[in-house]
Amino acid sequence: MRHLLVMALFAALAAIVFGAISKDTPRERWIYGVKVFAEFMVIGLVLGWLLRFIP
C-alpha cells in the first residue's frame, strides 16, 4: 500500500509541474495534468505487474 501511495505522490508532483508548464488555458492545463497523473499511475501499475513475473 505504501508503495502505491509513494507512486501516487510522485505522479501527482510530476503532473503538477507538467500541467503548469504546458497548454494555453487553465482548463487545458488541468486536463493535461490529470492525464499525466493517470498515465504515470497506469504505466506504473502495468510495469509492476509485468516485473512480478520476472524472477
Binding site: L9, F10, L13, A14, I16, V17, A20, I21
Partner: peptide, 16 residues
C-alpha cells in the same frame, strides 16, 4: 499560483 504549485512540488519532492 504557479510559484506555489511548481515551487511547492519541487520542495515537497526534495524533502520527501
Amino acid at each position: 499560483g504557479r510559484a506555489a504549485l511548481m515551487g511547492g512540488a519541487v520542495w515537497v519532492c526534495f524533502f520527501v
